[in-house]
């Protein structure tokens, strides 16, 4: 047993595929889990809706509730025009949620505990906002950075602040998810090491080990909450940012 809480985040290269001028593309354990996440989401939702019954069963209720939950979220924050992005937000939410939840199972790999993954998702959101904003509104999209009804001498400062806040969005969006997942898993692992370490110290240690053991139980419950909450936060913030692309200007 390695006493290394970081070990769980390790990327294992299973198959090296391509090497383009020093950039290595490999099939990794992260890739396996990403495909697993997609498979879980797709097959669960397909399985849940197989009956297409008028009165839904449990699984179908879950599928319908998640659909209506995200649809309501997008409609509330981005308006009915924002429903264009409903599949996108739904995909993001389910991907992050299932990645977080799968990561809680012992011996699994947490895709969202890697900054590059969360950063890519966050940049995808902001990229979508920028591309759609300019595509839909042209230069009017820049009104997003110009608050109306502000004295002229304050305007330059406010524009700077707005731009900085806009640019900090992907950073906060990606770091929030990444840090939550990373910290939670490290904490769980550290307490697991306490259990193993104390239990190996004899009979007294066994009793001592119960304390961190219950801590792990409590932390797992907390992490379950965090996993769902972070997926929700990611989806809500995405909807709010997308609203800026649809309705720029204050």
């Amino acid at each position: 047993m390695t006493v290394d809480p970081i070990h769980q985040f390790e990327i294992k290269r299973f198959v090296d595929l391509l090497n383009i001028s020093g950039v290595q593309f490999s099939f990794t354990n992260a890739a396996v889990f990403m495909f697993g996440i997609v498979a879980i989401i797709f097959f669960f939702l397909t399985y849940a809706t197989r009956g297409r019954t008028l009165v839904p069963g449990r699984a179908q209720s879950v599928a319908e509730m998640s659909y209506e939950f995200i649809a309501k979220m997008v409609r509330d924050s981005a308006g009915s025009q924002g429903m264009v992005f409903f599949p996108f937000v739904f995909t993001l939410f389910t991907f992050v949620l299932v990645a977080n939840l799968v990561g809680l199972i012992p011996y699994t790999f947490t895709v969202t505990a890697h900054l590059i993954v969360t950063a890519a998702l966050a940049l995808l959101v902001i990229g979508t906002v920028i591309v759609y904003g300019f595509f839909k509104h042209g230069t009017h999209f820049l009104h997003l950075f110009v608050p109306s009804g502000v004295p002229a001498f304050l305007l330059p400062f406010l524009v700077v602040i707005e731009v900085v806040s806009f640019l900090s969005r992907p950073i906060s969006l990606s770091l929030r998810l990444f840090a939550n997942m990373l910290a939670g898993h490290i904490a769980l692992k550290v307490f697991a090491f306490f259990v193993v370490g104390l239990a190996s110290a004899g009979v007294v240690g066994w009793f001592g080990a119960t304390l961190p053991f219950f801590m792990i139980v409590a932390l797992t419950a907390l992490e379950l909450l965090v996993a769902v909450l972070q997926a929700y936060v990611f989806a809500v913030l995405t909807s709010i940012y997308l609203n800026d692309a649809i309705h720029p200007g204050h």
Binding site: T28, A30, A31, I37, F42, L45, F88, I116, A120
Partner: peptide
């Protein structure tokens, strides 16, 4: 590990988006 991560994320997320928007939703 970043290029591999990004590659597979783009592929899997793209697949998931297509499945969700075309089939499931």
């Amino acid at each position: 590990t970043f290029p591999s991560q990004l590659l597979w994320l783009a592929i899997t997320f793209g697949i998931l988006y297509l499945l969700m928007s075309r089939v499931t939703l």
